[in-house]
């Protein structure tokens, strides 16, 4: 069953990659083939967004729930994998910006947001590594992750409005609720968003299981005096 799911995921992503290069047409007003990078950039950005929110939710379940270590491992793994997706989204975005706007980096509001997000979650990992006691580490990092979700809306909604303008293309889901995108491009984007999210949860699941094994090994050497 598990193997079958893995193959399905592999097939799904393959179709999505093929679609991005062969099925979808080029977007108007974009230089060369540069619009194709968006089929990867947008789903990765969305996935990191979902990963960080999931990390916050798991942190809250740990801190205000029964203090189940399982939730702490889930939160830490989600944030770790989320950072990887976030960095990939940033890099792909920067390459695209170089082609379109002539510079890798120009402090567009979204680039500000993503930089602060990466700084924040890197600080989260730094905090985790700076607390030797396991129980204390779980409490402190969960609180910090939740604090991040409290501050995030300010970065997300207020900062872009303050800087005033953006070169960033309209998001797929825009305030007017209308979709300004060619039908086939939309297909690939939906395929990619779902595929990358499933990919995230698969990697996340592996990461959680690995973390469980690490903790069990630490416990067994502690309580049974093994080597």
């Amino acid at each position: 069953m598990k193997t079958l799911l893995k193959w399905l995921l592999w097939l799904w992503i393959s179709i999505m990659i093929w679609g991005a290069f062969k099925y979808a047409p080029l977007a108007e007003g974009f230089i060369g083939d540069s619009s194709r990078i968006l089929f990867f950039h947008v789903p990765m950005a969305w996935t990191s967004f979902i990963a960080f929110i999931a990390g916050g939710v798991w942190s809250a379940r740990y801190l205000f729930g029964a203090r189940d270590p399982k939730h702490d491992r889930a939160a830490a793994s989600a944030i770790e994998v989320g950072i990887v997706f976030c960095i990939l989204a940033t890099a792909s975005g920067a390459i695209w910006a170089k082609v379109m706007w002539g510079a890798y980096w120009n402090w567009d509001p979204r680039q500000v947001w993503i930089t602060v997000a990466i700084l924040f979650y890197a600080a989260y990992l730094a905090l985790r590594s700076a607390v030797p006691d396991r129980d204390t580490r779980r409490r402190l990092s969960a609180a910090y992750a939740i604090l991040g979700l409290v501050v995030a809306p300010f970065l997300f909604f207020i900062l872009p409005r303050m800087t005033g303008f953006t070169l960033h293309p309209e998001p797929v889901i825009n305030p007017e609720g209308k979709v300004e995108m060619e039908r086939r491009m939309m297909h690939v984007l939906i395929l990619g968003s779902i595929g990358f999210n499933i990919l995230f949860f698969w990697i996340h699941n592996l990461r959680c299981r690995l973390e469980t094994l690490f903790e069990e090994r630490a416990d067994s050497t502690a309580f049974h005096g093994g080597s």
């Binding site: 602060v116 600080a123 905090l127 910090y144 604090l147 991040g148 501050v151 300010f154 970065l155 900062l159």
Partner: peptide, 8 residues
């Protein structure tokens, strides 16, 4: 830890 929180 404080800088990303205090940035906004």
């Amino acid at each position: 830890l404080a800088l990303p929180v205090l940035l906004p």
